[in-house]
Design a protein around this nucleic acid. Structure first.
Length: 202
DNA sequence: CCGCGGATCTTCT
DNA sequence: GAAGATCCGCGGA
């Protein structure tokens, strides 16, 4: 898909979209498009897998132990980026949900590349196939060049935005337990597009 | 295709 | 001092 087509067929999601329960935001983000400007190029991918992290009763969430230097953005206004370093070497990107003062965010786990695939390959040379480019939370940040510099960034304008198609785009949503956590395993907070080649775990 | 272990460092106990 | 919202390369089937 060309960038021109994308801009014509989509609009930037408003803050009200994110000012809702994290579960609803995670589900509704499926099928929308994450757009990134990096190194003079514009990269975009369809969001095909997300996970919700809640404010209360979710012991797997980073926000479960209250406000810290790292987690403060999760408690702030919606539609901001929460980026963190995991295992000392990878970054993960979340979008903050819920009204200001309430914790909640959505981990972006996988994209289906739509625009700027050449630049994504430069940023992520280890990817062999297109479906290796962003089929995992840290692969996604590598492919888009997202780092701690993006911590707290507003996603309504600027170099990182989310856009939805004007026309309805149908898909079947699959729901299950989140990946790679030990606490609150039983909560069905992982959402992905069923039968999509680009999700992290198939 | 599958399972295993190493890399590497911030955060919280 | 240990665990962690992960990825990759290796070896074997």
């Amino acid at each position: 898909m060309t960038l021109r087509q994308l801009k014509k067929e989509t609009r930037v999601l408003p803050r009200a979209f994110f000012d809702r329960p994290a579960e609803a935001v995670a589900r509704d983000l499926l099928g929308t498009v994450l757009v990134r400007r990096a190194n003079g190029a514009t990269l975009a991918g369809r969001i095909v897998e997300t996970e919700a992290y809640l404010g209360q009763g979710d012991r797997a969430a980073h926000s479960a132990r209250g406000v810290t230097e790292r987690t403060r953005v999760i408690f702030g206004p919606p539609a901001r980026a929460y980026v963190y370093l995991i295992y000392g070497m990878h970054y993960c990107l979340n979008l903050v949900a819920e009204p200001e003062g309430t914790a909640g965010c959505v981990l972006l786990r996988a994209l289906e590349p739509l625009c700027g695939v050449d630049e994504m390959r430069r940023l992520r040379p280890k990817a062999r196939r297109d479906r290796d480019l962003a089929s995992g939370p840290a692969k996604l940040t590598q492919a888009l060049g997202v780092t701690l510099d993006d911590y707290g960034r507003d996603v309504l304008r600027g170099d990182l935005t989310v856009r939805a198609f004007h026309y309805p785009t149908m898909h079947k949503t699959a729901i299950g337990p989140r990946i790679g956590i030990n606490e609150s395993r039983e909560l069905p907070l992982r959402f992905h597009i069923a039968d999509n080649e680009h999700v992290s775990v198939r």
